[in-house]
Amino acid sequence: MRNQNYNVPSGISSQFSVNLSLEIFKKMCLVRYFELGLIDAIKEKQVNYQAYLSTGQEAIAAALATEIRDYLVFTQHRAHDVYLTFGGNPKMLRDEFLGLPTGTSQGKAGSNCLQFHQNGLVMFGHHGFIGENVPQAVGAALATKKKTVCFFGDGAAEEDYVFSAMGFAATHKLPVYFVCIDNDLSILTPTKVRRSWKITDIAKAFGMPAIDIADDPWTILHQTQELNNNLPALINCYVCRAHWHVGVGVDDPPEWDRYQLVKNELISLGHEHSISDIEKQVRQSMETLWDKKLLLKPLKQ
């Protein structure tokens, strides 16, 4: 069952180019270091709004962003990862947290209702009803016939309207890629307490391809390349949330840290220097973004 290597083929990382692997890692870095800056800003009360942190689940969006960047994108409440990896502007997300008019939604929406409609990215967030983005994604695909990716969690997978919308997508053969970010927690209630079934079995019953996999980015990429001409389809990705459902707190250490596992893999492939350079570069740019002195300036606006 759920583990860090679930359905991860041996040696899968070596099937992809070095450049692509490093691009994925760079995107993962972006999310992690953006959120490290955000966490500091929250602890120091420069940011006073709630944050739904993506740390721990970066690999999924980072991998998908290299493959399906041109899809219509529908996200859930925990969406910093999708936003940053698919090309959302980090400064605008920071400004949203600061409640500034230069934020993604002029500071009116916040962490869990992220949207971005620039640089060719069409990304809609939800408004707090867990899984409401699933029928919306299906409706968007119905209206436009465009390929659409919809991110939701294992909790959302239990919403009745999520099932119904998946069934509708299957009936109408709509090009929707359902991506379930399965961190095994609804707030803190584990999946096994909540249900006895798997969302992949539901999807298969609707007649669409579906697979459970760990959040290994190369495996996700591989599966996506297999599925993206056979939509609708679903992947359920086992992942570990590093922080609380909302806020910067932590409980027990996560079962695995995919960021470190990806680093280890890249080092084993001989890319230690490259990833060190990438990490340094991203860390510096995020430290500049969240620089305490610079933060004072926008806060005074």
Partner: peptide
Amino acid sequence: ELPMTDIAGAGIAVGAAMM
């Protein structure tokens, strides 16, 4: 023709409206 999925059906309409 929507199936008998009241909430999802309305959500699908909203998704179409978002386009």
